[in-house]
Design a protein around this nucleic acid. Structure first.
Length: 478
RNA sequence: GCCUCCAUAGCUCAGUUGGUUAGAGCGGCGGACUGUUAAUCCGUAGGUCCAAGGUUCAAGUCCUUGUGGAGGCGCCA
């Protein structure tokens, strides 16, 4: 049987009365009559009604959770209560059996930890079906947003010869024999004999290359995988994750913040308009999950309300200096409830401080700007006070930093001086500096962690559950 | 990398101050029923109590180490 329809399409009901073909995987088979069929196109199942007198017992026993089948039948109004339409089957064909003794997914609740161990099958659950359909929508919405605004989608290299991106530990890329690497006269590894004739790594950011693009196309963005070899063991870090990095020329930090806020609202709105059934399921899932938690750890809003709240409210914008003043005056700081008590301007904000600002003080997304230059990267534009840089971080409730960005330093001399002071090898990065030598212009950009966005929109607590096959310390399965 | 907690049936869990034969629900298997909605009802099988060592007359239970998992912190997106 050829699949000419999706369940999503058939459930709209405008093919009622027609004979249709449908393929999918059995979720449950009740009463020897009712097959709940799912094909991944929607969270909803299509009910297939069969007359068990038409089939051998041995055939009916093969219809189990996970079995792949094809059905031909008439789409009719349902006699039962749980659905509007169903298929009265004329013909059922089994494509692939699913041994019920061995198939790990039962029609019951499984723990997310267990499903993570069978990540190759977890797409077939309601939760992960919803998560990955939302992930797909977010991905599409991001491209749509930039495309509608004449951004050029740029593919920056995955393998980089630069180790100065400064965003974290890198994974080495080599074809040398690690058991017996060639050595040079000084006894060091001789990278001249390596594939690229120099040390190379997996990229930790496409930003520097995106800046080069912005200095020609005016508006560019990247959307690709990034790799960090940090030994991070948290529910918001991955060793391989996807990042969106727009870069805009003739723009300052305010344009940058406007762009980021507009993008986040646009994609959240897109998902609300296109994935509402998945979101409703995820909202219920989260409510059930949080019933196990004490009251004060539960979300103060249901998922969909939270998403609408983000859409309808301006993000709170304030400077690092203002944030420090709020924190210094805050109760947990005065009563020394913070693990790291804020004592003076210049302190790096810990996640407990960010959480206080977002979840307790403002109760909405916050954009912090103008951080002390000593705690930020070399490429950020130095303010006239010579103490702060035009950095901006967007902090979201529950997940912390979702966006990190800045206006870039476009002045050749200032940039070169900062590189030298911070130990960034300027001679190896002449290509980067060249944009400041030839037609330099104000420009800005940011990095948006895609998985953190998916986490926020789906309400999933662990980042390992919003990417198909997560990579983290000690784990590269599948 | 650091701190805390957890590990019992295929899954989700219970198991008292250490006490002799380790339980339940779901799932599986056998049967009944046949407009069900994680169907229901009856019956039944299923255990290296994470691993190694130790304490004890006696360890699922206490101790040590290891392994795996979760949460938090740091690094960041």
């Amino acid at each position: 049987m050829t699949n000419t329809n999706s369940i999503k399409e058939l459930l709209t009901g405008n093919k009622k009365g027609e004979t249709v073909n449908i393929n999918g995987w059995v979720r449950t088979f009740r009463n020897n009559q009712f097959i709940a069929l799912n094909d991944g196109s929607t969270i909803n199942n299509l009910q297939i009604v069969i007359d068990f007198n038409d089939y051998e017992d041995s055939f009916l026993k093969r219809i189990n959770p996970g079995t792949a089948i094809g059905v031909e039948g008439e789409l009719v109004e349902s006699l039962g209560k749980g659905q509007t339409v169903e298929i009265k089957a004329n013909k059922v064909e089994i494509y692939g059996d699913s041994d019920p003794e061995k198939y790990p997914l039962q029609p019951k609740r499984h723990s997310l930890e267990f499903l993570r161990e069978i990540a190759h099958l977890r797409f077939r659950t309601n939760t992960f079906g919803a998560v990955f359909r939302v992930r797909n929508s977010l991905s599409f919405a991001i491209h749509k947003f930039f495309n509608e605004r004449d951004f050029v989608y740029m593919h920056t290299p995955i393998i980089t010869g630069s180790d100065a991106e400064g965003a974290g530990e890198m994974f080495k890329v080599t074809t040398l024999d690690l058991e017996n690497p060639p050595k040079n006269e000084e006894g060091h590894i001789d990278y001249k004999q390596d594939f690229f004739e120099k040390p190379t790594n997996l990229t930790v950011s496409g930003q520097l290359e995106a800046e080069l693009g912005a200095m020609a196309f005016s508006k560019v963005y990247t959307f690709g995988p990034t790799f960090r070899a940090e030994n991070s063991n948290t529910s918001r870090h991955l060793a391989e994750f996807w990042m969106i990095e727009p870069e805009i020329a003739f723009a300052d930090i305010n344009d940058d913040m406007d762009l980021a806020e507009e993008l986040l609202k646009y994609v959240i709105n897109y998902v609300l308009e296109n994935n509402i059934e998945d979101l409703r399921f995820l909202e219920q899932r989260l409510i059930q999950e949080e019933k196990q938690k004490p009251q004060n750890e539960r979300s103060d809003m249901p998922l969909i309300e939270k998403l609408k709240f983000v859409l309808e409210n301006d993000f709170e914008r304030l400077t690092y200096t203002e944030a420090i003043e709020i924190l210094l005056r805050s109760k947990p700081n005065k009563k020394k409830k913070f693990k790291y008590v804020i004592e003076k301007w210049g302190a790096d904000l810990q996640s407990e401080h960010e959480r206080y600002l977002v979840e307790k003080h403002f109760k909405k997304p916050v954009i912090l700007t103008d951080y002390p230059k000593d705690i930020k990267a070399f490429y950020m534009k130095v303010n006239d006070d010579n103490n702060t840089v035009r950095a901006m971080d967007i902090l979201f409730p529950g997940i912390g930093e979702i966006v990190g960005g800045s206006q870039r330093e476009e002045r050749y001399d200032v940039l070169l001086e900062r590189m030298n002071k911070m130990g960034v090898p300027a001679d190896e990065m002449q290509w980067y500096l060249d944009t400041r030598r030839f037609g330099s212009a104000e420009h800005a950009g940011f990095g948006l962690g895609f998985e953190r966005l998916v986490q926020f929109v789906t309400g999933m607590g662990n980042i390992r559950d919003v990417i198909a096959f997560p990579r983290y310390p000690g784990n590269a399965r599948f």
